[in-house]
Design a protein around this nucleic acid. Structure first.
Lengths: 112, 112
DNA sequence: GGAAGACATCGACGGACGTCGATGCATGAA
DNA sequence: TTCATGCATCGACGTCCGTCGATGTCTTCC
């Protein structure tokens, strides 16, 4: 695309991220890159028991129950939240592995 | 929205994320939640000098120069990349603060 | 000054995303 | 059994996003 015949700078070295790895991480980040979903994760993580039922989460937002359910599904599909149905209510809990994966990725990326 | 008159579970306690804070973090994460942009950041961060010029970044993707320029603009606007024009070429470098902010956020969120 | 190259910007297109109302599916109570 | 409740699913709508070709701007060299 740009072939002027001379190298304008040092070539990119080191072990960069592969395309497949980038797709995976992007999928996880995309699930978290939403204000509502971030608050959902924050609410669940900051709860005393470490989990929360949908009925309480609904009251925390000015959104339809269908919308909250959709966001929870996205977070669950991405592996961020765990799902546990007890009787009539459904409880969601945070998967620490997903969050620590993001944390370690960006902490090591600074000085690779 | 759901007021059955009885508490189905423990109320959400602790200091959760505010709506404004969630918007800010979501904007940063949205800039990173893209495979191409993730690889761009990874390429720049893993380079020997810690920076990379656009001409080399273009060759790493099967995308138009306009598309790469767009992604770099998004990352720059989000505060992820620094821009430095030297002569004809433009060099981008990673802002460590942005990445460490994400890392600390998700490392502390696990056990809040 | 004119030409060539590096990068940004513009306008447009197709697909993905967030949100909603309506409906379906369980579960527990009357 | 029947009904009410909690939650998921469906279909639809408007908007945002990634990508492209074309064009503009700036720098350097002849």
């Amino acid at each position: 695309m740009s072939e002027p015949g001379l190298a304008c700078c040092t070539p990119l070295s080191g072990t960069a991220m592969s395309a497949e790895q980038a797709e995976q991480v992007a999928a996880l980040l995309k699930a978290l890159a939403d204000p509502v979903r971030l608050r959902l994760v924050s609410l669940i993580a900051s709860s005393a028991t470490g989990e929360a039922c949908v009925c309480d989460l609904n009251d925390a937002f000015d959104l339809t129950q269908a919308t909250i359910s959709h966001h929870l599904k996205v977070l669950h599909s991405a592996g961020v939240l765990d799902r546990d149905k007890r009787g009539v209510w459904v409880y969601y809990a945070v998967r620490p592995e997903a969050l620590t994966a993001v944390a370690t990725l960006f902490s090591t990326a600074v000085r690779a």
